[in-house]
Design a protein around this nucleic acid. Structure first.
Length: 658
RNA sequence: GCUGCUGUAGCUCAGAGGUAGAGCACUCCCUUGGUAAGGGAGAGGUCGAGAGUUCAAUUCUCUCCAGCAGCACCA
C-alpha cells in the first residue's frame, strides 16, 4: 500500500498509508484527541473524520474549541437530528433540505398540517433524546441509481428531485445519524452526543417555497439556532431581545414619531416628533448636496403613461406602479397615469429641456423625490419597506470618461455623510454584468473597470457580486453595519447608458455634434423613511442630540419656578435649541421618568434654588448624576451640542471648547 | 403575492354563544413634591369590515381588509 505524508499545523509531518482517515490520525496522536475530535481541515477543505485521505496533504484536527468548524458541525448535525426527530414523531412527513445559516440552521418539511409552537417543544424534546443516545454518525458514497431507487421506495420525492439535479460526476454521499439516513455532502460529527444538548433552540416555523420558487410547493420551514455552549445561546437570545427593544415600529409609537393605518398601507403619517427628525436630516442632506456640486430640482408625482412607456417602466415595472386613471366626468380627457416609482425619467426631462453642451457636464441633478411603489403586501415592514417614500436621489449626467472621477467623487461624498451620521463601518460591493443584459462586452469592460478603479482611487476595497448588476449597467452598493451587527444596504451608484438612449438625451460635444450622455443613478441614504428607521434602531431611539426631536425638557420642581422655566426655554429656543417646558403638576421623579422613557437627551430641572441662583440642574439621558450649571453656560453648551455635525466648525468661538 | 398566526379603550393585554374588563395614558380634584411612577374621582370601546348559522354573534363559519413571522419580491 502506498504511503502519503501529512503535514500538521506545527510544521511536522508523518507518513501514513494512503486512505487513512482523519479519525485514524487523531487516534494515533492520543486517545483523548480521538474522543474530542470533531472534524479536520485537509488541504484547506473542511473534512469529515471518516473520509479517507489519499494524497499528501496538510491536516489540522478540530475540537469543539475551533469555533468556526464547531458551529458549522453542530448546526449541521442538528439539522439532521431535527429531521430525524420530526420523522420519528410524524413518519408521514417528507424531508427536503436543511442547510446551516447564520447562527443556526433550518430544515424544510412537507407536511399537511402546520407545525404548532407545541410541536416545536416536542421536537426539541425528541432531539435531546437523540443527542443523549450518542448514536454514531456514519457515511457512505452511493451510486446514483441506488440512491434514487432508495428514495423512490421510501416515498421521498423531494430527495429524488435533489439527486436528479446533482451533476452526474459528483459522488452522492449518504449520512446516518443512528438508523436515520439523509443525503448530505457532510462533514458531520462523530456521534450525536457531540452536539451540546443545552445550546440550541427551535425558534419559529414559517412557509418557504420548495427550491425558493414561488410557483412551487409551499413547505414548512423550522428554524433553529445553535452554538457550542449554553452561554453563547443565552447571549444570542439576549441580543434578539435587544433587537426587539430597538424595533423602530415600537419606538416610533412610544416616541410619538409616526403612525400607519390601514387606509394607507405602507405609507407613513409623520407626527411632529418624527417629522422633526425627517426635516433635520433633509436639511442636512440639502446642505451636503449644495456643497457637493448638485443642483436641486423637483418633478411631478403623477405622470402620463406615455413617459413610462418611453422609459421602459410600463413594460417592466408596471406591477409595482400605482396606476391613476382620471375619470372622464372630472377631466376633459380620460388619461392613464402612474405615480412615479423613480425619479430618473423626470430628471431626463429636465436635462432635455434646452440644449446642453459638453461644458455643462458633469451635470449633477438631485431631488428629494417622493416615489410610490406598489410593493407586495408581504414585503411591507414598518417604515423600512413602504409604498410611499422619498429618495435622496440624484442623477449625474456625464461622459463615459467622467464615470470614474464622478464615482470617486460620490464615494467621498457618501463617506463624509455616513461619518457625520455616525456610521464608520461600511463596505462597497461591485455588481457586475448579469446574464440578461444590453450593451457590448467592451463597454461593460470599460464601465466595470471604471467603478472598480474609482473605489481604489478613493481608497476603498470592494467585494464583487458576479452577475448582480442591472441589465443596463454595473452598480456599486454601499452597505453599513449597525450597532448590533446588522447590515443595511443604503447607498448605491448605477451606471446607465440605457435611459438616456430611450429618452433621447443628448449634449453638443466639443466637435459640434450631438452625443449621448451616460447617467449615474445615485443615492446616499436610499430613502429617508428607511434611513430614519435604521437610525432609530441604531441608537435604540436615543438619537444624537442634533437629530433628537425634543432636545431639552425644562421641568419645574415647584410651580413657583414656572416663570423661570419659561425664561430658560425661551433662552434655549432663541439659540435654535428645541426646548420644551414641563410645568405639569407632577413630582420631579415622574417628569424625569417620563422624559427619560421619551429619550429626551437633556432634562433641566428648576426649583427655587435654581430660580434664586439663575442656574439649572442638568441631567443627561441615561446618567444618574446631575450637575448644576448657570443659565448662560447651559444655553451656550446646548446650542453647541445641538448644532448639526456639518455646521459645527462654524459654531461661535465660545463653543470651541465643547 | 404565498404559508401560518393575529386583530377587544390612545398603548399593553384579559375575557365569554346572552351586546365587555384590567394596568398605563387622558380629564378633574387634593397634593408643591429635589432627579425613573404621590393620592382620589371621572370619562373613554358598533370588540377590523361585510355576509352566513342561531331565538341571540364581538365570541362559531365564510369572504375581505390590515398587521406580524418567514418565503418570494426589491428592473
Amino acid at each position: 500500500m502506498s504511503q502519503i505524508s501529512l503535514t500538521f499545523p506545527d510544521g511536522n509531518s508523518r507518513d501514513y498509508d494512503a486512505g487513512v482517515t482523519a479519525a485514524d490520525v487523531a487516534a494515533g496522536i492520543s486517545n483523548s484527541l480521538a474522543k474530542k475530535a470533531i472534524s479536520a481541515t485537509v488541504n484547506g477543505q473542511h473534512w469529515d473524520l471518516q473520509w479517507p485521505i489519499t494524497e499528501d496533504a496538510s491536516i489540522a484536527i478540530h475540537t469543539m474549541k475551533d469555533e468556526v468548524q464547531a458551529n458549522e458541525l453542530v448546526r449541521h448535525d442538528l439539522a439532521h437530528i431535527m429531521a430525524r426527530a420530526v420523522q420519528e414523531l410524524w413518519p408521514d412527513v417528507k424531508v427536503t433540505i436543511g442547510p446551516v445559516i447564520k447562527d443556526g440552521w433550518y430544515y424544510d418539511f412537507d407536511r399537511e398540517e402546520p407545525f404548532t409552537p407545541e410541536d416545536l417543544g416536542e421536537i426539541e424534546k425528541k432531539m435531546k433524546e437523540i443527542i443523549n443516545l450518542r448514536d454514531p454518525v456514519k457515511t457512505e458514497v452511493w451510486d446514483r441509481d441506488v440512491a434514487i431507487k432508495y428514495y423512490e421506495d421510501r416515498g421521498e420525492p423531494y430527495k429524488v428531485e435533489l439527486i436528479e439535479s446533482i451533476p452526474g460526476d459528483e459522488p452522492l454521499r449518504m449520512y446516518w445519524h443512528g438508523d436515520w439516513q439523509d443525503l448530505c455532502r457532510g462533514p458531520h460529527l462523530q456521534h450525536t452526543g457531540q452536539v451540546p444538548a443545552d445550546a440550541f433552540k427551535l425558534m419559529s416555523v414559517a412557509g418557504a417555497y420548495w427550491r425558493g420558487d414561488s410557483s412551487r410547493a409551499m413547505l414548512q420551514r423550522i428554524y433553529g439556532v445553535a452554538f457550542t455552549g449554553k452561554e453563547k445561546l443565552k447571549a444570542h437570545l439576549t441580543m434578539l431581545e435587544e433587537a426587539a427593544k430597538r424595533d423602530h415600529r415600537r419606538l416610533g409609537r412610544e416616541m410619538e414619531l409616526f403612525h400607519m393605518q390601514e387606509e394607507a398601507p405602507g405609507q407613513i403619517f409623520w407626527h411632529p416628533n418624527g417629522w422633526t427628525i425627517y426635516t433635520e436630516l433633509q436639511d442636512y442632506m440639502r446642505r451636503q448636496q449644495r456643497a457637493g456640486g448638485y443642483v436641486e430640482v423637483n418633478t411631478p408625482q403623477v405622470v402620463n403613461r406615455k413617459l413610462w412607456e418611453a422609459s421602459g417602466h410600463w413594460a417592466n415595472y408596471q406591477d409595482n406602479m400605482f396606476i391613476v386613471e382620471v375619470d372622464e366626468d372630472h377631466a376633459r380627457e380620460k388619461t392613464v397615469n402612474a405615480l412615479k416609482p423613480m425619479n430618473c425619467p423626470c430628471h431626463v426631462q429636465v436635462f432635455n429641456h434646452g440644449l446642453k453642451s459638453y461644458r455643462d457636464l458633469p451635470l449633477r441633478m438631485a431631488e428629494f423625490g417622493s416615489c410610490a411603489r406598489y410593493e407586495p403586501s408581504g414585503a411591507l415592514h414598518g417604515i423600512m419597506r413602504v409604498r410611499g417614500f422619498t429618495q435622496d436621489d440624484g442623477h449625474i449626467f456625464c461622459t463615459e470618461d467622467q464615470i470614474e472621477s464622478e464615482t470617486a467623487r460620490f464615494i467621498a461624498f457618501l463617506s463624509k455623510v455616513y461619518a457625520d451620521l455616525g456610521f464608520h463601518d461600511w463596505t462597497i460591493k461591485l455588481s457586475t454584468r448579469p446574464e440578461k443584459r444590453i450593451g457590448s462586452d467592451e463597454s461593460w469592460d470599460i464601465v466595470e473597470k471604471a467603478l472598480g478603479d474609482a473605489c481604489k482611487a478613493a481608497g476603498y476595497d470592494f467585494e464583487i457580486l458576479e452577475g448582480e448588476g442591472a441589465f443596463y449597467g454595473p452598480k456599486l452598493e454601499f452597505t453599513l453595519t449597525d450597532a448590533i451587527g446588522r447590515n443595511w444596504q443604503c447607498g448605491t451608484l448605477q451606471v446607465d447608458p440605457n435611459l438616456p438612449e430611450r429618452l433621447d438625451a443628448s449634449y453638443i460635444g466639443q466637435d459640434g455634434d450631438k452625443h449621448r450622455p451616460v447617467m449615474l443613478h445615485r443615492a446616499t441614504l436610499g430613502s429617508f423613511e428607511r434611513f430614519i428607521g435604521i437610525l432609530i434602531e441604531e441608537h435604540a431611539g436615543k438619537l444624537p442630540i442634533w437629530l433628537a426631536p425634543r432636545q431639552v425638557v425644562v421641568a419645574s420642581i415647584v410651580s413657583d419656578a414656572d416663570d423661570y422655566v419659561l425664561e430658560v426655554v425661551e433662552a434655549l429656543k432663541a439659540r435654535g435649541v428645541r426646548a420644551e417646558a414641563d410645568l405639569r403638576n407632577e413630582k420631579i421623579n415622574y417628569k424625569v421618568r417620563e422624559h427619560s422613557l421619551g429619550k429626551v437627551p437633556y432634562i433641566l430641572a428648576c426649583g427655587m434654588k435654581e430660580v434664586e441662583e439663575r442656574t439649572v440642574s442638568t441631567r443627561r439621558l441615561g446618567e444618574k448624576q446631575t450637575k448644576t450649571q448657570t443659565l448662560d453656560e447651559i444655553v451656550a453648551q446646548l446650542a453647541g451640542e445641538a448644532t448639526p455635525p456639518d455646521l459645527r466648525q462654524d459654531a461661535p468661538a465660545e463653543l470651541a471648547a465643547e
